[in-house]
Amino acid sequence: MSLDAATVRRVANLARLRLEESEVETLRGELNGILGWIEQLQEVDTEGVEPMAGGAPGEARLPWRADAVTDGGIAGKVLANAPDREGDYFAVPKVVE
């Protein structure tokens, strides 16, 4: 599987990375190099193998927490790093739905 320039642009769009036209070719080359190398995984016989989804070395189960309000009420801290805010709201350029 080899990436073409259109796919590079599509992926950059999905990832919300602005891509200058001049970067497309370089990136395409690099990505194809990496993907070509990854391609060797196809040699491995994985018939009947359960995929390993998490990082735990053994069986893992989701731990549960009690239903109690233990957080929140910290709007000041939540907004302290905001690049733009209006009152206690985060602000972004107007979105048209």
Binding site: G73, I74, A75, V78, L79, D88, Y89
Partner: peptide, 9 residues
């Protein structure tokens, strides 16, 4: 109130 029921998560 806006953002008053928000954790860092």
């Amino acid at each position: 109130e806006p953002n008053s029921q928000v954790s860092f998560v």
